[in-house]
Nucleic acid binder design. Sequence first.
DNA 1: TCGTGTATTCGTCAACTAACGAACACCTGG
DNA 2: CCAGGTGTTCGTTAGTTGACGAATACACGA
Lengths: 107, 107
Amino acid sequence: MKPLFHPRVEDLDLSTILHACADPTRLRLLADINAEPGKTCGTFKTELSKSTLSAHFKVLRESGLIRQDLGPGNSRLNWPRTAEVHSRFPDVISAILKSTTRGSGWS
Amino acid sequence: MKPLFHPRVEDLDLSTILHACADPTRLRLLADINAEPGKTCGTFKTELSKSTLSAHFKVLRESGLIRQDLGPGNSRLNWPRTAEVHSRFPDVISAILKSTTRGSGWS
DNA sequence: TCGTGTATTCGTCAACTAACGAACACCTGG
DNA sequence: CCAGGTGTTCGTTAGTTGACGAATACACGA
């Protein structure tokens, strides 16, 4: 398997992270991953094609918001990096996630 | 003067707000406005052209992050709408602003 | 009224984005 | 070995973005 790139904590960039969160689809994925850490990519309910979804996961991963590990078969396990992001940008992600769970768009 | 559009609090959208914050230039403008409310557009130090700057102010205004009132002459006074945004999306903007003031890109 | 200062709007351009299907890569089970 | 399941990568397309200069609009002062 090709090694997946994950940025180091010290390389996290606030604008990159906010850009990753600014897309409704990605915000929903991020919330789901935080609500249920370790989910595989295929378990997300969405209307989007597989390739589109994969691209969104890549943006989340390369921004440092999630970690994708190898799972059984050829699957990926998705984990939040919320704690790491918090160490650089305190409360930003937790505040965003709280707002997503309170009727702000996608009940 | 043409009336400037300002979204109502109940129409604020988290993705729109995050997108507005995701640009380094706009994040800097937002931080400056919060640090010094009432600044006019011309008082911001930047390398960008006037039209580009105006476009950025428009994005901030239409996302609901700032309010632009008429000032003396033909100037605009820029005010943060942080409290209003906070009422919809608690702590999101304040957390972002705190991160900008701590060496995250533009000392 | 005529210039000056302030800011928006318009038209253009290059770069980026999100979306898709098709093709590919990889593991696992039969 | 082959088929099925899981994701990624590639190439394309339509739409959006950020940047600029030039033109415009407006208020104020001389």
